[in-house]
Amino acid sequence: MQRSRFLLLITLALLVSVLLAACGSSGDDAGPSPTPLPGTILDPPKEVADFTLTDHTGQPFSLSDLRGKVVMLFFGYTNCPDVCPTTLAEFKQVKAQLGEDADQVAFVFVSVDGARDTPERLAAYVHAFDPDFIGLTGDDAAMRTVGQDYGIFYQRVSYDNPDNYLVDHTASSFVVDQEGRYRIVFPYQSDPAGMAEQIRRLVAGQ
């Protein structure tokens, strides 16, 4: 009798502790683990061809015009309501995180929708985020060449709205170093602080 009551007691105690454990947020904070940096570094750096497109002022603009700076590139289109603005907002955060080093970095939005993205439209778009951001656009042939070096996929998609089309596109960001070599790729929605840290290392020549 006594023994069975005892068993009951123990069972109850176990049940309570199991329930509490299941309930509570698993408190296994094993101290501050260093968060890994978000980008994939290309080692050795990839030699990429220079390219010339049209910038947001309507002038020809070459990647080599930015020689001496670290360049952060994103390929998108202005009729993109969520991924592209999110990324440009992150670029803005990266720039803020860089502080004084931001002078050594150029932020470039390359349109994969040259048919709709005129220089005026690009200017309004990139400057809605930062007056220093650069917008580039070009025809399909020019874009194909540029895209190949960075492994960019993009494709127009028509659907039942005849007045509109969508553009599937790679949402990663790419970093080119001061010598025009492709060095880092960041997946979509990488942590801005982590991106800034990796870019800062490039600025410092590491």
């Binding site: 993109c80 309501p81 969520d82 991924v83 996929f153 998609v157 659907y159 039942d160 709205n161 007045d163 509109n164 969508l166 599937d168 596109h169 790679t170 949402a171 990663s172 997946p187 979509y188």
Partner: peptide
């Protein structure tokens, strides 16, 4: 002029796709 319901997905190759 037009309002649609869309979904954006990011595939395993980090390609953004938006679809009605």
């Amino acid at each position: 002029g037009t309002v649609e319901i869309h979904e954006t997905t990011i595939d395993e190759n980090d390609v953004m796709k938006m679809r009605p």
